[in-house]
């Protein structure tokens, strides 16, 4: 099989697996949280049903909105799909389009910007508020993101994700090293902030004064809302899968054979299920931070990542 053909197969497999799994990941998180709080909760498949329902409805578009309102949902969804296709989730085989961590981060930013502009487009005060807060968090999370990227790249000498995952699988001791642990902790904070989870943003709130992500989606409906939600869930699942592969790099396929890919997909689903449950359980005991306390959290995780970098440089 040619290199391009292999790339296409990998991209298609990862996209299909993740698109099918992402709503379920969110469903698991909600279910675990509901059970832990003593509620019955919806079913695990509820997010999927919501998606189908939204997709069938007619979207409403407010007066005075521009083409941005139509493009932004598609842009968010396809940027999430690019991330899913690039990140080594099912297989860590080197790909034609290099899975460069810096490229992945910037593709995520495309989605961030799309949704921020969507929030401004309708000209409602809530949209602007959400957009403004969202961009502030995105701006302050950026140093931590790149520091975590750096902490992961320096030991390998490359910012290629497949190389990083490969190196961790070959040398499991590096996962438990101080530098490795600090870098992953910093990355987890980044993932929480990037995907709008507690304690940075509460995905289940619609209380006007505290919402960030939801405020930007207020004007979206029908299939626009479906694209936006699916895009957000795909981001969450891809980043959780990445964390899973960094902490437990076993089961990730090394090549692109059908058997390897099937095994890799099963391992990925297991890791996603586990992490979703952990996320849901952890969110029970966490309250949302005040908006202006979020920079402190991000600064803290920046320091962790910085320690990880200096630790790996000075100890080695």
């Amino acid at each position: 099989m040619s290199a391009v053909g292999a790339q296409v197969v990998v991209a298609v497999v990862q996209v299909v697996v993740l698109v099918l799994a992402a709503p379920v990941v969110v469903g698991v998180t909600r279910e675990v949280r509901a059970r832990a709080e003593g509620r019955a909760g919806g079913r695990v498949g509820q997010p999927w049903r919501d998606l189908v329902k939204w997709w069938r409805k007619r979207p409403l578009q407010a007066t005075g909105t521009s083409v941005v309102s139509r493009i932004a949902p598609v842009l968010l969804l396809s940027s999430s799909l690019v991330v899913v296709a690039l990140v080594p989730l099912v297989t860590a085989a080197p790909t034609v389009v290099p899975a460069d961590l810096l490229v992945v981060v910037s593709v995520l930013l495309v989605g961030t910007v799309a949704i921020a502009l969507l929030g401004l487009d309708a000209g409602s005060a809530f949209g602007g508020m959400g957009s403004s807060r969202h961009m502030m968090i995105a701006a302050l999370v950026e140093p931590t993101v790149l520091m975590a990227v750096y902490a992961l790249s320096v030991p390998v000498g490359s910012s290629s994700l497949s190389a990083i995952v490969d190196a961790r699988r070959d040398d499991p001791a590096s996962i438990a090293s101080p530098a490795g642990v600090l870098a992953v902790v910093a990355l987890v904070v980044v993932v929480l902030a990037e995907t709008g989870r507690l304690p940075v943003d509460n995905p289940s709130t619609h209380l006007e004064l505290t919402m960030v992500h939801e405020a930007m989606l207020l004007e979206a409906s029908g299939r626009d809302l479906a694209s936006l939600e699916l895009g957000g869930w795909l981001r969450l699942s891809a980043l959780l899968g990445l964390v899973g592969n960094l902490v437990l790099p076993w089961g990730v396929a090394g090549g692109t054979g059908p058997g390897e890919l099937a095994l890799g997909a099963v391992a990925l689903l297991a890791k996603l299920g586990l992490l979703a449950a952990v996320l849901g359980a952890a969110e029970v005991g966490v309250a949302k931070l005040r908006l202006f306390r979020v920079p402190e959290l991000l600064a803290g995780s920046f320091v962790l990542a910085f320690l990880a970098v200096t630790a790996s440089a000075l100890v080695a």
Binding site: K57, R58, L60, V74, S78, A122, G127
Partner: peptide, 22 residues
């Protein structure tokens, strides 16, 4: 994605010109 959106748009066209909800 665009193809899927276009197919959906044929079945359920967009309702434009409604006041922003906010």
């Amino acid at each position: 994605v665009v193809a899927a959106v276009l197919v959906a748009a044929r079945r359920a066209p967009r309702v434009v010109e409604v006041p922003a909800w906010g």
